[in-house]
Design a protein around this nucleic acid. Structure first.
Lengths: 193, 193
DNA sequence: TTCATTTATTGAACTTGTTCAATGTTTTTG
DNA sequence: CAAAAACATTGAACAAGTTCAATAAATGAA
């Protein structure tokens, strides 16, 4: 059940077999049905999770009720509200399953235990956070400099497997545009082909 | 000379006096004159830096020649191109001093030495990267959901000391709008007061 | 299968933001 | 100090993106 997790960890750092077993033993499998929430705004995020099945969206709802999708997570991706989890403060985010999904969760206490006992775990999360940060920097630059057309085209090119599983409403909330405008962009692209 | 650095580190983790001395001893002071570059796109970023004087801008130039500012760094902030530094690949970013500035720099080799010898340093950079990442997530959400007016007002409110040292061109490049439009926003705000 | 709900498309009017060009202001630098 | 360079403002025309409302299409639940 933790095969995918082990493979993921191995892609970042190297652990001995027993270290790997010990660390992965700290995770608990959780099944989340479509449209159910792993986290809601206002709660304190009690877990860091690794997706083994399905797909999640991590999003924010602003004062006017509009949704902004921070990221999607499919199999082999990690999910958490890093701010709420590390600082134990109420989350501003929602994490919702978009399909029947499963994730392996680790609690804060167990994660801290791992940091103490296995120094390489500290490295694992440093490296992963760095990579996530680099990706977000790129997205930030793209959002500052590119039109919605370009961002949409690059999104479907970069995540072909992902965009097929999403509605246009969700993609629009990720790109930061209205779904009506996304519909117009899609039409324009179709006409050009 | 490393007083500010020590204080900064202490705000994230606790080190013994000798650990602190050893780690801080790995940094070299560098003076960068106004309009000079600490890093240019195409180069491999050889340092991670801590600003002790002045101000830097970290920015990207896109294909059409427009600049997007990823962040500013004043005294007590860290600067690097984390992607180029960790993966030793050509940078896409420029780091330029906007005033006569100084920074304490650590090389990759010395930083890796510190990771090996002082496990707490691993924690230091994990924690710092997490905080930076949380801040960038917030900025991403703001950029997806707020108008330029709101983003400008929040910027000057959040960084009052910073915005006074910047030109409107630089603030516009950070907010992702043209400087002409920023000028119009400023006028509108003045009229309202 | 059918009815209800969610999702997608379209058009028209509107708002936000850009571009370009001209002009004035401030800052640098020789 | 004077000249040059960089910065800021403004207006007009335009492009990008939103909002609202109507309709069609797809999906899901009973």
């Amino acid at each position: 059940m933790t095969e995918l997790l082990k493979k993921n960890i191995s892609s970042h750092i190297s652990l001995t077999k027993s270290e790997m077993e010990e660390f992965c033993g700290l995770f608990q499998n959780k099944i989340i049905k479509k449209k159910k929430f792993l986290l809601s705004a206002g709660e304190i995020c009690k877990f860091e999770g690794f997706v083994t099945k399905g797909i999640f969206r991590v999003y924010h709802i602003d004062k006017s009720g509009a949704e902004q999708i921070l990221y999607f997570a499919i199999e082999n991706w990690w999910i958490t509200d890093i701010d709420s989890f590390t600082n134990e403060r109420p989350s501003q985010l929602f994490i919702e399953a978009l399909e029947d999904s499963e994730a392996l969760l680790i609690s804060k206490k167990d994660k801290e235990f791992a940091y103490e006992k296995l120094p390489k775990i500290e490295k694992l999360f440093r490296v992963m956070t760095q990579k996530t940060h680099v990706a977000l920097q790129r997205r930030m630059i793209d959002n500052l400099s590119k039109t919605a057309d370009q961002r949409y085209l690059e999104f479907i090119e970069k995540y072909p497997q992902l965009h097929q599983r999403l509605t246009n409403l969700q993609i629009a909330a990720y790109l930061g545009i209205s779904h009506e405008f996304l519909s117009k962009i899609r039409k324009k692209i179709l006409l050009k082909k």
